[in-house]
Design a protein around this nucleic acid. Structure first.
Lengths: 133, 133
DNA sequence: GTCGTATGTCAGAAAATTCTGACACATGTC
DNA sequence: GACATGTGTCAGAATTTTCTGACATACGAC
């Protein structure tokens, strides 16, 4: 069984997202469990804007998901989770993903495009998944 | 069983090598079978120096192997093969690979270091695997 | 109000990567 | 010899990625 259908764009996005030591550390830290941005930045010893950028890239690749929640205090806290993906890469898989690989310069279409490994990434941007007590 | 032991450095090198559309195409083309540099450059429509650089990166990551041979004409021809690797990546695997991830700035030691997926990459640089008729 | 926490975003510097156009070499053929 | 093929390498430009230091907002507590 093939892994359903791995898009060339998704493969490229995933590999690009994993091609950075910081992002590997972030993903590894989130494998232990969800965490919110500020604390994660302190744990990993990096600035918040930097972590924010890396999380953006990981999220765009569909490797992590973020959800804005409310703590008991009423503070807005954004938690990030590692998506339980399982990415398998072989030369053959790469080859079969090539047809769906954007044309190097034809990518200037959808800046909102998200090449995720999982189909529909539930846009919870403005949702109220609030857990106010 | 776990994939033996995936080094953080090897994981990072592999992902970095795969984080480029050209290199994905190269690897996909080599999945069909071995090919030599100049012809591959024509097939993929890229300049030879550029292809050379990408092949270097793929080889450094242990994803392809190159062997300099002699054609019937006596011309030196360098063939590249796709290594039959099978890379599996999950958040847990990333996490377990973190301890062997170089310290972001501690990598300034071995410029000859090769973070391959397979143990000993047979330095055939000066060998005479010549197939002269 | 001020302070501390959380969030996000922005411009611009710094660094790494990508790419080109030379150049070098060797070999066989004309 | 000149020409075509193959190889590799180099300096510098162009581009992308990475990173910092501001700045903005909102909320609760003092």
């Amino acid at each position: 069984m093939e892994p359903e259908e791995l898009t060339g764009a998704a493969l490229l996005a995933a590999c690009s997202a994993l091609a950075n030591p910081h992002r590997l550390r972030i993903l590894g830290a989130l494998a232990d469990g969800r965490q919110y941005v500020s604390l994660l930045a302190r744990q990993l010893g990096m600035s918040r804007p930097l972590l924010h950028m890396h999380l953006q890239k990981l999220q765009a690749a569909g490797l992590v998901t973020g959800s804005l929640e409310l703590s008991e205090d009423g503070k807005a806290v954004k938690y990030f989770d590692a998506v339980p993906f399982a990415l398998e890469i072989t030369p053959q898989i790469v080859k079969s993903a090539l047809p769906t690989l954007p044309d190097t310069a034809t990518t200037a279409a959808d800046p909102e495009k998200e090449a995720s490994l999982c189909p529909p990434p539930t846009p919870e941007c403005c949702s109220s998944s609030v857990s106010s007590s």
